[in-house]
């Protein structure tokens, strides 16, 4: 079978988180007998579904050589606003969550892409502002319980072909993300803009629009993550998602995305999230303190950063 060099490069990047994942499986399988059970593995898949969406959104923005600090709060805001909407308009209002995400993405993307404000400044400003909005609409940050939990419980906890419908929904979004990254022209434009903005401009790509669209896409995925959060918790949680955008960046880096742009590796990002989630669940199962788990996560992110430098150096030598 002929594997194209592009796919080969991506497969090579997958080897690190892949090996890490297998390693974790072996270690935790030995330490905690109930780790390698179908139930627990499915549990990990379900638990990672929110972070996976945020991380995929973040990957799009990273590929254009930007980043988005608002994604965590977008998850929270989407879940809260969506809960309010569902309580007043019924189940069709679940569609509000992705819509909230898109609106937030349009705002941030406009600031970074069109007005050219530095991503740190723009997304930090929007982050703080949106947290305020989330607290305001929920009345001083109260959680918003769903009046009718029927649909949410079915979606998040029933079993359809082995997985809850919400998890299937996340899988569908992953496929969509993969299509955009691998097959769509937009995905190529993200990479072109992130890799060599001047060259992209020379062939007629309007880079500011491309950056804008990457933020909208990230917002959409974060909004969908907010929806999954609402379904699983049965409650809109306006103060959730703190630091999630950072975990998302970490997952993408573990998966072989470079912060310097030009790489869009959705499979890698999914592997990165799986790695982080497996680490956390495993540490939890062997009874480690959650604070130790935090230290471990931090160490993994640092290791990924060191690895990024190494990967970059070797690829430059190869070029």
């Amino acid at each position: 079978m002929h594997i194209s060099p592009a796919n080969k490069a991506e497969l090579r990047a997958l080897m690190v988180p892949g090996a890490g994942l297998v390693g974790l499986g072996v270690i935790f399988g030995y330490l905690a007998p109930n780790f390698l059970t179908t139930g627990n593995l499915l549990n990990i898949v379900t638990q990672m579904s929110i972070l996976v969406l945020v991380a995929i959104g973040q990957s799009f923005v990273l590929s254009t050589r930007n980043f988005d600090l608002t994604l965590g709060v977008v998850v929270a805001l989407a879940s809260a606003v969506c809960a309010i909407a569902v309580n007043s308009w019924g189940s069709t209002a679940y569609l509000v969550a992705p819509f909230v995400g898109i609106v937030c993405g349009m705002l941030t993307g406009c600031l970074v892409g069109m007005l050219g404000i530095q991503p740190v400044v723009a997304t930090l400003g929007v982050l703080i502002g949106l947290r305020g909005v989330a607290f305001l609409v929920t009345g001083s940050g109260q959680v918003v319980p769903l009046a009718d939990r029927g649909f949410a419980t079915w979606a998040a906890y029933s079993n359809v072909f082995g997985l809850p419908p919400a998890t299937w929904f996340v899988c569908g979004l992953c496929v969509l993300a993969l299509w955009i990254a691998k097959r769509s022209v937009l995905g190529k434009k993200f990479v072109m803009t992130g890799e060599r903005r001047e060259a992209a401009q020379l062939v007629g790509i309007r880079c500011e629009h491309v950056v804008w669209k990457s933020y909208i896409l990230a917002g959409f995925f974060a909004g969908c993550a907010g929806l999954v959060l609402l379904l699983r918790a049965g409650t809109g949680l306006p103060s959730e998602g703190v630091g999630m955008e950072m975990q998302a960046i970490a997952a993408a880096v573990i998966g072989g995305t470079l912060l310097s742009g030009g790489y869009l590796r959705i499979f890698g990002t999914i592997f990165g999230v799986a790695f982080l989630q497996t680490l956390l669940t495993g540490l939890n199962l062997i009874g480690t303190s959650p604070f130790v788990a935090q230290i471990a996560t931090g160490a993994v992110i640092l290791a990924a950063g060191v690895l990024e430098g190494a990967v970059k150096n070797t690829s430059e030598v190869g070029a």
Partner: peptide, 19 residues
């Protein structure tokens, strides 16, 4: 050079069309 190292030769040749 104004090419995109992460993309294939074919994609680079088509950059104008992709834009």
């Amino acid at each position: 050079l104004s090419l995109f190292p992460n993309l294939s030769v074919h994609e680079n040749l088509s950059a104008f069309a992709l834009a």
